[in-house]
Amino acid sequence: MNIPVGINRILIIIKGKKMIDTLEMLKIFKNHRGNSVVIPGRGGKHWVTLTDNQSRDVPLGDPAMGGHASYAFGLALAIPNETVVLFDSEGDLLMNTGALATIADLAPKNFYHFLLDNECYATTGGQPVPNAQKVDYTGLAKSMGYGSTYFIDNLEDFDQKIAEILNQEGPVFIHLKINPEIENVPINQRVRWQNRTWDQVLSDIKSELSVK
């Protein structure tokens, strides 16, 4: 079958799968967020509509793809008395899987690493990531040295396990299978979801954390 690259192909790939809606997942997470510092990554477009503690959010979008895990890890190291929650993506992580080894090496106890895995590059039209359906990210994190890992592919399980996840010592890795939200609109016609500039985001979080 000649499947065109793009949204049609992705819809065929996910047909029959039970996956998580990111917005609904974040609504549940919000109830458990507490006072944690949240780096929403590619979940940012939903998180900015849900959050009620914006000054403790770090929605940077995509300063340079592949760096979210290392950035959030660095922040977690810097503020060991604060809980740091990252919503990473599989496309980002595949660019720098070695970051997992560094994170597991220093093992910040305050770090919770959620991976949003939609099996594709959604913002570029939905092309599959390499070996999209077969990569075992939980196994990868575990073999890199994360002490605690989860694989969750439905909202009910997420709702049931989120308290347990956040109540244990980090670093914890949580692989979430999510529905792709593919963007095919040309870049210059897309509406920005960011409601603060990078400067504002960093100024706000530093002020919140009382750091220079």
Binding site: V58, A64, G74, L75, G98, A99, T102, D105
Partner: peptide, 25 residues
Amino acid sequence: ELVPVSREGQAFSVAAGLATGGKKP
């Protein structure tokens, strides 16, 4: 504190996170 990375590009994002949290890498 030593923070070993496995590819140099990771160093900049780690450093950015540390700096956001008030450290000096």
